[in-house]
Design a protein around this nucleic acid. Structure first.
Lengths: 195, 195
DNA sequence: GTCTATATGATGATAGAC
DNA sequence: GTCTATCATCATATAGAC
């Protein structure tokens, strides 16, 4: 109410990112024009460049913030020390976290090609950091004799792929609640590494 | 040697599809121009339109031929009738078939957005036909008591996602042969549905 | 911070000669 | 079946007024 005239769109930067995220997820980075993004948030094209240096950087920021948020969240999830409870916590965390932000997950898989080599390398490092947490759980479980893991790297890739795959078919309006999905997937993961 | 003059590029249509496949896989459908494709096969842009009606149809044909080839191949694979041997055969077939054509698999997942609703529906039907084969195996295994499957639909999605995920990391020059990968993945799938 | 105007070049597709 | 030439449109990004 006491806003200064001209500050009605003070958070144009945030709205720009939100609009870009949704448009990129729906149509793909290369298929979305700066004009479309500008129209979506109600400004002219030229005005966008007050908030981002170029389209490429806009994409990178979306992807890298998604990865940073993922690492922060898994840290905050306080995964237990014991291998089996840790695997259960990781499984449930991954499903829940990814189901809550489908657009980010989608563009994180689809638009990696459109990053510069340097930016791609930065993101890869973050991704490997995340995957290493699961690998460590599996290795501790195998060492403790409570899990059977023939190859920790392959088991990691298999589990991540199967959990992230939930996003391709899960719909909030579907026959299953996310809780039920978590339950069944945890059962499959547990048996997959059963000692 | 006895070729008619002018027929040196008799298979321009085939080369066009091959070039488009590789360029779409590398850079994405929307990021590839008809000029790039023409340059890749050594013709002028206008000449492309003797072989395809438009860029969109070119993409659809690549995707739909990939799905037709997959269904043909799984048919030819002669999956056994017994549930457990059938699951093993399906697992190995899926990994081998997909590893042999990474570009087709890649664009089949990445470029679905760029299809018209009608073409998308056609492809979806083919995909569901393929997935239904795995679901049927799991249901027969559960009914026979040789598998534990809480939810056949979710188990199908989980297994397909984890198997197709091999394509994201497997390299022929890596530390593992495809045979070793098959072996380990079959072990994980078998335990996942262990009765 | 947003606007208008513009630079500069690429895009998919077609027409018509050979 | 391939070529050249062209249409009409769209692209990203910048300059400078307000």
């Amino acid at each position: 109410m006491t806003r200064t005239v001209g500050s009605t769109a003070a958070d144009t930067g945030a709205r720009l990112r939100q609009a870009a995220l949704q448009l990129f997820a729906r149509h793909g980075y290369a298929a979305v024009s700066m004009r479309q993004i500008a129209a979506e948030i109600g400004v002219q094209v030229g005005g966008l460049y007050n908030h981002i240096p170029d389209k490429q950087t806009l994409l990178f920021r979306l992807l890298s913030e998604h990865m940073a948020e993922l690492l922060e969240a898994v840290e905050a999830a306080e995964i237990p020390a014991e291998p089996l409870p840790a695997l259960e916590a990781f499984t449930r965390f991954h499903i829940r976290h990814h189901a809550a932000r489908p657009e980010q997950v989608f563009i994180s898989y689809m638009e990696l090609r459109n990053l510069s080599p340097e930016n791609f390398a930065l993101l890869e490092a973050q991704r490997q950091d995340y995957e290493a947490r699961l690998s460590a759980i599996l290795e501790r479980g195998a060492a403790a004799g409570v899990m059977q893991v023939e190859d920790a790297r392959m088991a990691t890739m298999a589990i991540i792929a199967m959990l992230t795959g939930v996003n391709t078919w899960f719909r909030e309006t579907g026959r299953l609640s996310l809780g039920q999905v978590e339950e069944v997937y945890w059962g499959m993961v547990r048996r997959m590494v059963a000692a």
